[in-house]
Amino acid sequence: MTDHDSNSGKHADSVTQLVKLMACLRDPVHGCAWDRKQTLPSLTRHTLEEVYEVIDAVEQGSPDKICDELGDLLFQVVFYARIAEESGQFDLSAVADAIVKKLLHRHPHIFPDGNLASFGQPSLLSPEEVERNWEKIKNAEREAAAPSGESVSVLDDVASAMPAIERAGKLQKRAASVGFDWPQISQVLVCLQDEIAELQEAIATADTQEQIHELGDVLFTCVNLARHLKTDPESALRQANQRFENRFRKIEENARQAGSSVADSDAATLEQYWRAAKESEN
């Protein structure tokens, strides 16, 4: 037995134990009242919380914390599958089979015959080429799945419930996959400058709805700029949030040391504290 086979067996045993545990928690007689009460819709908010906790753990860089939070997220997947299995919709095996089939189909450069047995041939594709091929394959899948005669858009199935920043990037990426995109970063910067100018005009008119409209366009263009910079806008904003939090806490501390508070400090003093907080980062 190879190390790969041994690890696969260990993974299977661990997942089997988790599936059994989930069945016990959902047992109608001896199970947990809270777990039995849950439905597919009721789980969604918990799933979002677990996803964010995984991201926090990754950013903290603690392997133990990442492992713990990934376990919580895996439990969510098993939970959904168990509820669906009880109503005869699908089970965890169907979930795993579906993703295996999907990944085999979307990685022809790794599995040329569309099965695991064809693995082992070297791939010369760059990450950028792989990403472009991925989008082309997904577009073809959408067209193949559409009912006869029904029009298909590359923007189909971009979930409306996604966070706005993430959805903006997804929409832009889909459009770019069929050639609708600025070829140069400089053009995106010009577009951003134009959108800011339009926002300034809207502010001058005092038209609230127009201001919201133009601010949305500015934010959408910022996401587009991040995509061209090959930077995740959500990650960039999270880092900016952290920088602001760190600096503001230093401002609060400086105010306390001066025997005052942020609320009681004048604008010039707060600006001085802010600059000091920024300089301390360097």
Score class of each variant (00 low, 15 high):
G9I: 10
A12H: 11
V15Q: 08
V19D: 02
D27K: 05
P28W: 00
H30V: 08
G31F: 06
R36I: 00
P41A: 07
E49Y: 01
A57K: 01
E59P: 02
D64N: 12
C67W: 07
C67G: 10
L74H: 07
F75G: 03
V78I: 15
F79P: 04
F79T: 09
S93V: 07
A94W: 08
A96M: 14
D97L: 05
K101I: 01
L103F: 03
P122V: 03
S126C: 07
W134H: 01
I137F: 02
A145I: 10
A145T: 06
A145F: 05
D157V: 09
M162N: 05
M162I: 14
P163D: 09
R167Q: 12
L171D: 08
R174M: 14
I185C: 07
Q187M: 10
L189G: 05
D194L: 07
A197K: 09
A204K: 13
A206R: 13
Q211A: 00
H213I: 00
E214T: 02
D217E: 07
D217P: 10
V223F: 03
Q239M: 09
A240I: 00
Q242K: 10
R243P: 04
F244N: 07
F248D: 09
I251F: 03
N254Y: 14
Q257C: 15
S260R: 04
S260P: 04
A268Y: 09
R275C: 11
A276G: 08
